[in-house]
């Protein structure tokens, strides 16, 4: 397994280099001189020249890239223009908030998506299957920022059940923290639940046709035992891999969800950075999410090999 992971990391290196070139190139896509954009209102030629020297803008582009990548390798992703904090530190501060949101959303998605997928496959062709499919497709089609707005209107404004916005750190008041995060997590979890339902249904359908399920039934085992112990356990192998791969979707969804519920997490950091033209932060975020996504892919492959021993000798 370690050799497999090592091999996958080696294969990922060129991809990480390409991501870093892309992220570096982003600042050269800015219309006009990036230094003038960074300088903002400042027009003092001495300051502009100092910035040009600091960011090595007078050097040839490959030299600039190597200097930038070298610093990034040592964890230096630059300084936020707005807060004057190192970008990596800023990301580290905001990430726990988004992780809490993502984990809660994933739990909600699993609790809805997997049972719905099992039921839909088991009742294939009935109205339950039809309804579950329509609900799943609707979950995939509804923009989560609109769902968030509508839930705020109903649950917070009209019914007053849950707060409409804000954040409470989990370490300070766990109950309040979960209560505040419940609605955003539900909003973020809907699309994921729909994806999980469709994958679980398709995996269950193929497992339910298999010989070992037929044998289990022929042995006279109770239907619930056949379904949970024999069918679901095997059907979950591809679903677990899908869950690992949903990381990107969770992060992207968090951008909008955090914006609507004013949660001070990673997603809100992206949007604030974009509007404050804090380009170093935007670059740092794209680079970090790219690398994290590759790591999750490697983890998904490793999980698949652990869950499916037939893969390990390939």
């Amino acid at each position: 397994m370690l050799a497999f992971i090592g091999r996958r990391i080696l294969i990922a290196i060129p991809t990480v280099i390409i991501i870093s070139i892309f992220v570096f190139a982003l600042q050269h896509m800015l219309p006009g001189d990036p230094i003038l954009v960074m300088a903002g209102e400042e027009r003092d030629p001495a300051v502009i020249e100092a910035l040009r020297e600091k960011y090595r803008m007078n050097d040839p582009i490959p030299v600039q890239y190597l200097a930038w990548a070298g610093a990034a390798l040592q964890g230096d992703l630059g300084i936020s223009l707005r807060t004057q904090q190192p970008v990596l530190e800023l990301i580290g501060q905001k990430l726990p908030v988004t992780i809490q949101l993502a984990v809660m959303a994933l739990i909600i998605a699993i609790l809805i998506g997997i049972p719905a997928g099992v039921l839909s496959a088991y009742k294939k062709g009935t109205w339950i299957d039809w309804l579950a499919n329509i609900v799943a497709l609707s979950g995939l089609s509804v923009p989560n920022f609109w769902l968030g707005i509508m839930l705020i209107l109903l649950v917070s404004v009209k019914l007053g059940w849950l707060p409409a916005s804000g954040y409470q750190p989990l370490s300070e008041d766990p109950i309040q923290s979960i209560k505040v995060m419940l609605m955003p997590a539900f909003v973020l979890g809907t699309g994921i639940a729909a994806t999980l339902m469709r994958h679980t249904r398709s995996a269950m359908l193929s497992v339910l046709k298999s010989d070992y399920v037929r044998t289990a039934r022929a042995k006279g085992l109770r239907e619930r035992v056949v379904l949970v112990k024999h069918a679901l356990r095997n059907a979950l192998v591809p679903v677990v891999t899908v869950i690992t791969l949903l990381f990107g979707e969770l992060l992207a969804g968090a951008v909008l969800t955090e914006q609507i519920f004013t949660i001070p997490g990673f997603g809100k950091l992206v949007v604030d950075a974009v509007f404050n033209r804090d380009y170093a932060v935007v670059q740092g975020i794209v680079l970090c999410t790219g690398i994290a996504f590759i790591a999750m892919n490697i983890l998904a492959d490793a999980a698949y090999r652990v869950l499916n021993p037939r893969m390990s000798d390939q």
Binding site: G248, L251, A252, V255, V270, I285, T289, G290, I291, F293
Partner: peptide, 10 residues
Amino acid sequence: AAPFLILAIA
């Protein structure tokens, strides 16, 4: 590797 929406936003 970059999530669709984050790439589009950037």
